[in-house]
C-alpha cells in the first residue's frame, strides 16, 4: 500500500481557512492527508505545537496565514514568521528535516492556490517519507525543551520590536545580529541537552567519554561542563586517575 503521509495544518481563520472553504465551494480537489486546526491567526501557532505534532507522529506540518499586510490582526503573520523561523532553526538543530514544516500565505480568495499548496506539500512529504517516531520523538522532545526556554521565547517575542522600533535604549538592532544571538542560544542549549542525555545514558561520565558520545572536541565539552556546573545541573562526583567524573543533579525526572 503506498505510503500516505500524515499531515497537520494550522489555518488562520480569516485568510487560509477561508481560502480552504473557497476551494471547497469551487470543488477544487486536493489530497486528503492533512488534518486542519483552525486558529484565529497564524500568529497563534506556538513552536511547541508544531514540535508536539512531530513528536506524536505527524510527518509534516503546514502553517498557513494571511499575506503580509493582510492580517486581520495587523501584525499576527509577522509574529508567525518569527515563531516559525525559530521552529525551523530548532528542527534543523535537533535533526528533524526543516522541509517537513511549511509556512505560507493563502488569501481568502485563493481557493485554487490553496489546493495547489496542499497538493505540493503532500507530495514533498511523500518524497521525504515517514518520520520514524522512535528517532524523531526524543528529538522533538529536546526541541520542545529548547523552544520553551524563557530567554529564547523572550528574544523571539521581542525581535520585531527591537528591530523595528528599537530596544530599551531606543536603538534599532540589526536583524542578522539578533538571529546570530538566537542561533547561539539554541546551539548552546541543544549541546547542553546532548551532554545531559549523554550523562543520563552512562552516569557518571568523563569529559572524553561525553565528547565521544556527542562527537564534540573535549575543550568545547569541558566549557559546557563549567556552565552546567555553575547552573547547578551537573556535579563533579570524583576524580579517577586524573579524569573528573560528572553526574546529573537536580534533574526532575520527566
Amino acid at each position: 500500500m503506498a505510503y500516505e503521509p500524515k499531515l497537520l495544518g494550522f489555518l488562520c481563520n480569516w485568510c487560509a481557512y477561508a481560502g480552504a472553504d473557497l476551494a471547497g465551494v469551487s470543488r477544487v480537489q486536493y489530497p486528503p492527508n492533512m488534518r486542519v486546526i483552525r486558529v484565529m491567526c497564524s500568529g497563534r501557532v506556538d513552536p511547541l505545537h508544531v514540535l508536539e505534532a512531530f513528536r506524536n507522529g505527524m510527518d509534516g506540518v503546514a502553517v498557513l496565514g494571511c499575506h503580509p499586510g493582510d492580517c486581520h490582526y495587523l501584525t499576527g503573520n509577522y509574529q508567525a514568521e518569527r515563531k516559525m523561523d525559530l521552529t525551523f532553526r530548532v528542527m534543523e538543530k535537533v535533526g528533524i528535516d526543516p522541509d517537513r514544516l511549511l509556512l505560507d500565505w493563502v488569501s481568502a480568495a485563493e481557493g485554487q492556490r490553496f489546493g495547489e499548496v496542499i497538493t505540493d506539500f503532500t507530495e514533498r512529504i511523500r518524497e521525504l517519507g515517514p518520520l520514524d517516531a522512535a528517532d524523531a520523538g526524543p528529538k522533538a522532545a529536546v526541541g520542545e525543551k529548547i523552544a520553551s526556554m524563557d530567554r529564547i521565547r523572550w528574544l523571539v517575542g521581542k525581535e520585531r520590536d527591537m528591530v523595528d522600533h528599537g530596544n530599551v535604549y531606543g536603538d534599532k538592532l540589526d536583524e542578522a545580529e539578533l538571529k546570530d544571538i538566537l542561533w547561539n542560544n539554541i546551539v548552546n542549549e541543544y549541546n547542553r541537552e546532548l551532554i545531559r542525555s549523554a550523562i543520563r545514558a552512562g552516569s557518571p561520565a568523563t569529559v572524553p567519554s561525553i565528547a565521544e558520545a556527542v562527537e564534540m572536541d573535549t575543550a568545547t565539552v569541558f566549557k559546557y561542563m563549567i556552565d552546567l556546573e555553575n547552573a547547578g545541573q551537573v556535579h563533579m562526583m570524583d576524580i579517577v586517575d586524573d579524569d573528573p567524573r560528572y553526574i546529573l543533579v537536580g534533574e526532575v525526572s520527566e
Binding site: 573535549t218 563549567i226 586524573d242
Partner: peptide, 17 residues
C-alpha cells in the same frame, strides 16, 4: 572560580599531573 577549585586543564577538562 570557574572550576570550583578543581585543578583542571582547558583542552580536555582532565586533571593535569
Amino acid at each position: 572560580g570557574p572550576y570550583k577549585s578543581h585543578v583542571l586543564r582547558a583542552s580536555d577538562g582532565k586533571q593535569p599531573k
